[in-house]
Amino acid sequence: MDVITIEGTEYKVVAERPKSLTDTPFTYCPGCNHGTTHKIIAEVIDELGIQHRCIGIASVGCSVFSYEFFDFDFISVPHGRALAVATGAKRMRPDSVLMTYQGDGDLAAIGTAETIHACNRGERVTCIFVNNAIYGMTGGQMAPTTLLGMKTTTSPLGRDAKRIGWPMKMSEMLAPLQGAAYIARVSMHDAKHILKAKAAIKKAFRAQLEDKGFSMVEVLSNCNVNWHMTPQEGVKFIEEQMTKNFPLGVYKDVWQEEAAKQTAKEEG
């Protein structure tokens, strides 16, 4: 921690912009949890001391410019293909740490096949999946994760399950695949949950560093602008509505499974 002197008193800085972020201010809307998510990812990378080994994959959506904000090597790739690009890069550079940063349209709609197969192959990459139930960058269209009844610019009367199906539950879908090492769903709605999210992201990177398999953290995030809410109302909506449809928790934990196997072995 840095120490500075103010009016003769020495202070240590206990919270500041993480080193793995550039100085470029986030261009996200006020209150948008993309920033919060970027910040905790960078903190995890700082704490693990892997900044200069990281390769980031920026996807398409609001996070298309995420490469402006993370201070390590980055590539910006076609919509939905982040995990395929990460696969190719990781296979060539197994000592690099690969992170994809994808939204719900990118990962759960156009990139569903790439996502499922990267997970099933157990690619040693870490996927941060930001689920805000809407297409932010294109102006608030329906996402595969849009909640039932939620009004968007392409579901003006509210999402109707009969016509367009139900919100996609990606964490639940991926967790049973044997390539998955760590799958968790976290939320950004308050400080406690943000700290939990950070712990989950750290575990996800550890899964990659320890060569365990594919890891993904699904981050429930607000899009207050396209939800037509204030940031405070937005985080409240996550807490009250999003978490009801998308239950928080750890869906796959390879360490826990290994420990259970060990216990069974010892007992058996």
Partner: peptide
Amino acid sequence: TFIQSESEVAAINMIMGASATG
């Protein structure tokens, strides 16, 4: 390294990743 990809789309993007690393 060889991967039989899930699609042609995935294959070209995997190549993009591999090529990006040199």
